[in-house]
């Protein structure tokens, strides 16, 4: 069984083909990075997997279940969790209330308090999230997804706009995640990508330009051209 499988996923916005024939499989426990230039369709890819938008064609399977037509909340209940490129939190609510909303009541492995304690956030639990710094909110973005006890986790640029100290906090968090969780990460920071990922998929103009182990990506000429070239 694969953690995630897409078959010929296609999405158009009007005349704009944002995803074209994307077929991808991700193994259970794998760390997969999705990279590509701005507007390549990375976030749209996550949106179709999580169900925020419906694809025009193609199929999506999560742990063997066909989810193509399921609403987002049903996919979440299959163990799919995601973070958002732009923070999407309950900013007027306390951190604890945020976590309460993320933890399924009957199947949670631990209490919200234990969860926050574990991650070293309990002392801030009563503070409304809007009073946190941007970097802290970015971490809460990740905490919310983790509180769902996901089996498949989609991270959309978790370190975007953060200082290097804050980036380190996030990368430490995700590096230490259990291998029971399969992780897909969209990330522009190549150090993070090469440090964290097992395999890398490069999207360009809505197509898979390349997919392979990270060393193969490093040496691939086409990838260097469209993406890495501008980073080095």
């Amino acid at each position: 069984m694969k953690a995630l499988e897409t078959k010929s996923l296609t999405k158009h916005f009007g005349g704009l083909a944002v995803l074209q024939d994307i077929s991808m499989t991700v193994e259970v426990g794998e760390r997969r990075a999705i990279i590509g230039p701005n507007g390549a369709g990375k976030t749209t890819f996550f949106n179709t997997i999580s169900g925020v938008i419906k694809p025009n064609a193609g199929e999506i399977f999560v742990f063997g279940d066909k989810v193509t037509q399921l609403p987002p909340f049903r996919r979440a209940r299959l163990g799919l969790a995601r973070t958002f490129q732009q923070n999407n939190l309950f900013v007027n609510l306390s951190l604890l209330d945020n976590i309460n909303l993320a933890m399924p009541p009957n199947q949670a492995k631990m209490t919200p308090r234990d969860f926050l304690d574990n991650w070293g956030w309990w002392d801030k639990s009563t503070i409304p999230v809007k009073e946190f710094s941007y970097g802290e909110q970015r971490q809460v973005e990740l905490l919310l997804a983790l509180a769902q006890s996901p089996r498949l986790l989609l991270l959309d640029e978790p370190t975007a706009g953060m200082s290097s100290v804050e980036t380190n906090k996030i990368t430490t968090m995700i590096r230490n995640l259990s291998r029971e969780i399969t992780v897909l990460i969209i990330e522009h920071d190549m150090d993070v990508v090469f440090d964290f990922a097992d395999r890398i998929t490069v999207l360009n103009y809505g197509r898979v330009l390349f997919e392979g182990a990270k060393d193969e990506v490093r040496s691939d000429e086409r990838v260097k051209e469209v993406y890495l070239g501008s980073v080095d």
Partner: peptide
Amino acid sequence: KAIVGVRESETRMQALGHNT
């Protein structure tokens, strides 16, 4: 509380598994 969550962010509530 879940209803207040919908007020705050419906998309996030869906992503968290709530039938908003």
